[in-house]
């Protein structure tokens, strides 16, 4: 019976000289979930993920990724994980098809390269040399190389940076398809809407610490947060009040105005408001 957790990290710590990149991270990622690590630049996202990917050594703590310590992984371990790096066009002289076919050869149970190329939306560019691709197309190639081995666990580091809105939507659908097929996904992102759209749970990381882990809709007690009710007074001024019971307040306002309340809005804090508040407090 496989462990229910794809990733377990306890007391993860990593410093570069004087600079502590990861101070104390405890993390659990369940099998089959989409987990987003959200945080500002320099918060320790990339260092944390690269320790999990086996690229960096930790200074302290315990880590298990698919049952292996990434620093000393089991023989088959790399066959079971996929990594989407932020490439900068490493194989300029080769075509998309050549690169994907080559990488397929490294895996025990690789997917069909042409299918993968089509799935990331590069079918029309299959024969093109990679140096002719646009930024967004290069990222799609990165994704193709990440999923060519049909990984159980896929890491994506800021996957949609440089995408136009339509490409992002298509990419999100691809992630959802992979998740629906049972792939566990860990992604880091700057984009709150991306975390909200894709993630089952979001971990907010700031100053090398994981300060909260929750479903996007529960982050920072967002559901319990007070709503802000605003309206216009007869004098033309905007007035607002925070309320735990906004419906009651609106009813009261309706009575006061004798029907329609001028300029009425009821808002709850967005994920962005909550997030900025969380990292601002550190």
């Amino acid at each position: 019976m496989e462990n229910e957790l794809a990733i377990v990290a306890r007391g993860l710590r990593k410093a570069y000289g004087e600079n502590t990149a990861v101070a104390e991270v405890d993390l659990e990622v369940r099998r089959g979930e989409v987990f987003a690590l959200l945080g500002p630049n320099g918060a320790g996202k990339t260092t944390t993920v690269e320790i999990l990917e086996g690229y960096r050594r930790r200074d302290a703590g315990e880590v298990s990724v698919l049952g292996s310590d990434p620093a000393t992984p089991a023989a088959n371990w790399r066959n079971r994980i996929g990594i989407v790096l932020q490439g900068v066009g490493e194989f300029d002289e080769l075509s998309v098809s050549e690169v994907v076919h080559h990488f397929a050869g490294f895996y025990a149970d690789a997917d069909d390269p042409e299918k993968v190329i089509a799935r990331v939306g590069l079918a029309g560019k299959s024969r093109a040399r990679t140096h002719t691709l646009s930024g967004g197309q290069k990222r799609r190639l990165d994704v193709a190389l990440g999923i060519i081995g049909r990984p159980e666990l896929l890491f994506l580091d800021e996957p949609t940076t440089g995408f136009d809105p339509e490409a992002r939507r298509e990419f999100w659908q691809l992630i959802r398809d992979l998740a629906a097929a049972g792939t566990t996904i860990v992604l880091t992102t700057h984009y709150l809407d991306e975390a909200e759209a894709l993630a089952d749970r979001v971990g907010v990381i700031a100053s090398g610490r994981l300060i909260e882990v929750a479903a996007p809709e529960h982050l920072g007690n967002r559901q319990q947060a007070h709503a802000t009710v605003s309206w216009r007074t007869p004098e033309g001024l905007t007035e607002s009040a925070e309320s735990a019971t906004p419906t009651e307040l609106v009813t009261e306002l309706a009575a006061r105005f004798g029907g329609e309340v001028p300029g009425l809005t009821v808002t709850r804090p967005t994920l962005e408001d909550i997030y900025l508040q969380m990292i601002g407090h550190r």
């Binding site: 089509a118 990984p151 159980e152 049972g182």
Partner: peptide, 15 residues
């Protein structure tokens, strides 16, 4: 495209 589910059991024969 239909995705083949990721499984823990892999045969290493294709490598």
């Amino acid at each position: 495209t239909t995705l083949k589910p990721a499984t823990a059991a892999r045969e290493a024969s294709h490598q």
